[in-house]
Amino acid sequence: MLLEIDDITKSYPGPDGPVPVLRGVTLALGLGESLALTGESGSGKSTLLHLVAGLDGADSGRILLDGADVTALDDRGRAALRRTKVGIVFQQFNLIPSLDIAANIAFQARLGGAPDAERTAGLTKALGLEPHLRKYPEQLSGGQQQRVAIARTLAASPRLILADEPTGNLDEKTSDEVMDQFLALVAETGAALLMVTHSPRLAAKLGRHAHLSQGRLA
């Protein structure tokens, strides 16, 4: 198994004491698999994604990625994990405004120390970003920006791709186009995909489906 999530709990401090967000979630995902994680607002799906990415630490339980315990890593180790093994596609794209599109696409791959010019060129072409390479993020439409974010993530060749409502900011038509391109490209790489979405229609496009409710898998 690429990813093994074992009885994870997490709570955040609230005004009246800790608010539990995840109450013991267990899940596994293999290479080439794709899993849609759905749930109500506040069900803990984004938090689970952040824990897997090593962006935050869990209260208890374990997350194993390629057999390594993510929850046991220190800040430096988690950062290295994010640079090399995990790629994240955010809802708000989160491109780097000071860099042009070409630099944005290459950014994470170069951070991880494994830039692959051919692969990057291929992704750029596949996502139709070639005319925009010298532009800056603010000059692109939302759909184009998300394509850049996807290219950025895939160019780094992560084993596990995490996506948090990747098309949540796009209209339905664009959303479908981008999602289809995204899924096709992920499938090509053979990486595992864990995607958070609230849309059953999009969830249906993925191989597996899990539903979170009040911090537990239904």
Binding site: A80, N94, P97, L111
Partner: peptide
């Protein structure tokens, strides 16, 4: 918002 993505992509807060 400018720093968080870079952090998310694997640069530590200290760095």
């Amino acid at each position: 918002p400018q720093l968080a993505p870079v952090w998310a992509m694997g640069v530590t807060q200290r760095r």
